[in-house]
Design a protein around this nucleic acid. Structure first.
Lengths: 146, 146
DNA sequence: GTTACTGCAAACAGTTTGCATTACC
DNA sequence: GGTAATGCAAACTGTTTGCAGTAAC
């Protein structure tokens, strides 16, 4: 069956944007792209590094770090400021609510974000402030940690 | 005229909670309490340190840092994870929307948070997740930086 | 061949801790 | 007097950079 078509399309799009911008497609980068789109656990840079290490035993943290920066600057992924200890990354750039567990530090998507579109209109009314994105974080304890 | 009654009450409450918990009221801590309640600019630990330095020229960053931790752990202030570079603190623990300017890094309160109570109900529906607080951040550019 | 990426090592910045001294209660 | 806070200095952790060698195009 191969890979899921959704992910393949996502990765193809990123690859195309890289080529258009004159950026190079390296095996390391491809692995990072794939990892981000397969894994929806909102990994930190360190997490991404350790995972890609399984495929590229000689990849450096610097490469992972710089690739994440590039993707973020292109708007292909969003950098989450939820965990004060480190940044986490999300390939899903649509606006949705995250839950953050204070105990295990896990970040999850809130499934039922039905009212989100309505919610999004809210801060656009701020006088003079140009909203690029909205982050909504529910901070607390997950089912396992309670 | 003296101090505004609101602030005095807030500070009195904190002082009382400290006494009840067996924590000591020092001049350094009092200055930090006052500063937090007078200044609504969502200061970082460094900001608080530099401001208190004007009153206590020998205060250390460690003291400021530890006092902020204590206040946060007591739930008297909230620690904001908006700016990935550093933590900011807010004595207003009511749920309200913050704007964060990518350029000048300033954090402000969104005045018009009328729909906030409605908004707050949303993530409480997450199965098994116990919500302690909700942070809503509008990230973008402020009027001055545009 | 040219240009950009990789990976190393080192620098950085904010945060956190251990401990002796000092101050509050 | 007993207990906790202060302030110093140093350790820590995640983030960021400079640069020589390497690989993509």
């Amino acid at each position: 069956m191969g890979k899921e078509p959704e992910q393949m399309r996502d990765i193809e799009k990123v690859v195309q944007r890289f080529r258009e911008t004159g950026l190079k497609i390296t095996p390391q980068r491809l692995s990072i792209f794939r990892l981000l789109h397969q894994n929806h656990s909102h990994p930190s840079a360190e997490n991404v590094y350790h995972e890609t290490l399984k495929i590229h035993p000689s990849i450096s943290f610097t490469t992972v770090y710089k690739t994440l920066q590039t993707l973020r600057d292109m708007g292909e992924i969003q950098e989450l400021s939820i965990n004060p200890e480190r940044a986490h990354y999300d390939p899903d750039i649509s606006e949705h609510v995250h839950t953050f567990c204070r105990s295990c530090k896990r970040i999850s998507d809130l499934e039922d974000s039905a009212d989100m579109p309505l919610l999004m209109k809210l801060p656009h009314g701020s006088p003079g402030f140009e909203v690029h994105s909205i982050q909504v974080h529910a901070v607390g304890l997950c089912a396992e940690c309670r």
